[in-house]
């Protein structure tokens, strides 16, 4: 806190902090609480299929459903293991 605000006792503007914290936590909880039931199954089956061909672990595949206005985006993120250098 600066010296000026120390003397004049201006209060901290906390509302913007509250808004920022809320927008993060609400976005996060909407993501976890409102995903359709099939996502865990989809993730499991994708792992089964892909691991037939590539050596991937359960944590290497992320399935997320995002909602932007009226448009839903299904995002599948597969991290392939690092190739050994030839």
């Amino acid at each position: 806190m600066s010296l000026l605000s120390y003397f004049f006792g201006s209060k901290q503007k906390t509302a913007s902090v509250a808004k920022e914290r809320l927008s993060l936590i609400i976005a996060h909880e909407r993501g976890t609480n409102r995903t359709p039931d099939f996502l865990p199954d989809l993730q499991r089956e994708l792992i089964a299929v892909i691991s037939k061909y590539v050596n991937v672990g359960p944590d290497d595949i992320k399935v997320q459903l995002e909602k932007q206005d009226n448009c839903e985006i299904l995002e599948v993120n597969i991290t392939l293991p690092e190739q050994p250098q030839k």
Binding site: K11, K13, A15, S16, K19, L22
Partner: peptide, 17 residues
């Protein structure tokens, strides 16, 4: 309190929800 920046405005709440 909203004007003083210590309370969320109704617009903030609406934007969040």
């Amino acid at each position: 309190r909203v004007e003083d920046g210590e309370m969320l405005s109704y617009k903030d709440v609406q934007e969040l929800l």
